[in-house]
Amino acid sequence: MLKLEHIKKSYDKTTILKDISLTIGDGEIVSILGPSGSGKTTLLNMILGITEIDEGQLYLDDKDLTNTPMEERGFNIVFQDYALFPNLNAYENIIYGLRNKPNVSTMEEVDELIELLELREHLTKKIDQLSGGQKQRVALARTMVMKPKILLLDEPLSALDGVIKESIKERIKTIARDYHLTTIIVTHDPEEALTLSDRVLIINEGQISQYAKPEEIIQEPKNKFVRDFILNQLEIKKNNIYSLFHTEMETAVAYQVV
C-alpha cells in the first residue's frame, strides 16, 4: 500500500502542490488526472523520487521512503517519450537492466513479457524502425523486467493514435492484473483516466479535487471543477458519438428493451 501524507511542493515560492494525502491499494490502477499546470507530473516525479519532497511523508507498506533515493525505492517509470536507447535494438533495450541486476528476472520471465506484449518479431529491430505503439511496448517490457514495486506511466497514450491507444490500454490493464502491480498513470484526458483505472485522482491547482472510483465521479461529482471540466468534456464527447451513431443507438436500445 502506497501512502502519501500532507505532501507539499513549491518552486521559487510558487506553490505547485499543497497538502496532498491519499492511499493507493496494492494492485490498483490509479490515474492522476488534471489540466496542464495542475501539478500532476510533479506529483508523479515525487513518487518516483526525481523530485524532492518539501514537506510531508511517503510510505510504502508503512516504510518511510520520503528521503530514500530514487534508485533504492524500487519503483520504475515509462516516460512519455519512452527514452529508449537508440544505440541498442529492441531486445537489448528490454534486457538493459539485467546487466546490473542479473537475477531480477529469469530468462523465462523475460520471454513471458515478450510474448505478452507481442514483441517477438520486433526484437532485432532498431528503435527508429519501431512504430509508436511498438516503442511503448518495448519501454513497458524494459521496465517490467526490473519487477518494479510500483509502475509509473507518464502520459502513456498521448503519443499514440486511435486503435493502438485502445490496445495499449488493455495491455496495461492485463499487466496490472497479471502481476498484481500497483500502477500510477498521469494523464490529461478524462476519457482515458476513467476507462483505464480503478480509481481516479483529480487534481486542480495543486489540490485534490476528487479521489474516487470512475462511476462515483460520474454519479457524484464533488465540485464545480469536476463537473465543468471533467464531466462536461465527457458529455460533449458522448453526445458527438451518439449523434454519429444516432440510428444504430436507437435500434440497440430498442433491442435491449426487448
Partner: peptide, 23 residues
C-alpha cells in the same frame, strides 16, 4: 538526446559513469 535517459538508466541500476559509457 532524450532528457530521460539518465533517469531511466539509473532506475535500471546504472551508475552515472555507466550510463555515459553504455548510453
Amino acid at each position: 538526446m532524450n532528457v530521460s535517459w539518465e533517469t531511466t538508466a539509473r532506475l535500471m541500476g546504472d551508475s552515472w559513469f555507466k550510463t555515459i559509457v553504455r548510453v
